[in-house]
């Protein structure tokens, strides 16, 4: 805004204030009604849809298909959309850059859109932005709510487990690999690839450990796992479909 526009706004607002009404009771009156109705609504929800206590935590089972809270659905769906792209550029763009650019845009928006115009129909760009962003968020949340739920079961249905295999399966489940990968029909169908027959790829342990330590995003790094766990996990994953099936 140019200094003249600022002055004009200040003058105009001072006028609006002079011919205005006191905050108490005019604004407080409406505020109290809406806030009161909202609280009543929350109490009604709490009574009608009562909270439950779920199963106690058991990191060793996948009888539950992992899912984030609904307001993080959009982030999880974003991961799915941009999964399986190759190395660095597009992936970093998608899963790291997109949300962070959105956050930064959110914070600095007033310093980008600085024109004096406030009327809705005279700001097509800003209105277009909010329609697109809101639409995208709603769509991704909808996708998340309706995504194929994945298949849950007690433990992974793979046979032939030796000692290392059992330990590896435990690590696999403890770390939520199943929230991105499917093994023998158990787990979530994305964003990561199905690992049921991963063993046929013939990775050796070193390659697998190196991958787990520094995978392509959006798969998180597991570099901080204890070395013994990493080894067991690598053995287990490398044997899927060959040794363990």
């Amino acid at each position: 805004m140019k200094p003249a526009d600022k002055k004009a706004y200040d003058r105009d607002y001072a006028l609006a204030k002079k011919t205005g009404k006191p905050f108490f009771p005019y604004a407080i009156f409406k505020d109290t009604i809406v806030a009161g109705l909202t609280i009543v609504g929350i109490i009604v929800l709490a009574i009608v849809v009562q909270v439950e206590v779920g199963e106690p935590v058991n990191p060793a089972t996948t009888d539950f298909v992992p899912r984030p809270e609904w307001y993080f659905y959009f982030a999880f769906e974003l991961l799915k959309i941009f999964a399986n792209q190759d190395v660095l550029t597009p992936v970093i763009m998608a899963t790291f850059m997109v949300p962070n650019i959105m956050i930064i845009l959110l914070v600095v928006w007033p310093f980008i859109d600085r024109g004096p115009e406030r009327r809705i129909w005279k700001r097509p760009f800003a209105m277009g932005m909010i329609v697109i962003v809101t639409g995208m968020l709603c769509y991704l949340t909808y996708l998340g709510a309706n995504s194929p739920a994945g298949v849950a079961s007690q433990g992974l249905p793979v046979g032939g487990l030796d000692e290392a295999g059992t330990a590896g399966m435990q690590v696999f489940m403890n770390n939520g690999c199943g929230s991105c990968h499917m093994v023998a029909g158990v787990g979530a169908p994305g964003p990561g690839p199905d690992l049921t027959n991963f063993g046929s790829k013939g990775w050796d342990e070193a390659k697998q450990i190196a991958w787990l330590k520094a995978p392509n995003p959006p798969m998180p790094s597991y570099a901080s796992l204890p070395p013994a766990d990493l080894e067991a996990l690598a053995t287990f994953v490398n044997g899927l479909g060959t040794k363990y099936k």
Partner: peptide
């Protein structure tokens, strides 16, 4: 600290941890 809460948080933390470079530290 029930199954749903635990796994939802595992997933959410994985989302943060999948960021490049700083991700593992955030995790």
């Amino acid at each position: 600290w029930d199954q749903k809460a635990y796994w939802a948080t595992v997933v959410a933390v994985n989302i943060f941890a999948s960021a490049p470079i700083v991700g593992p530290y955030i995790g």
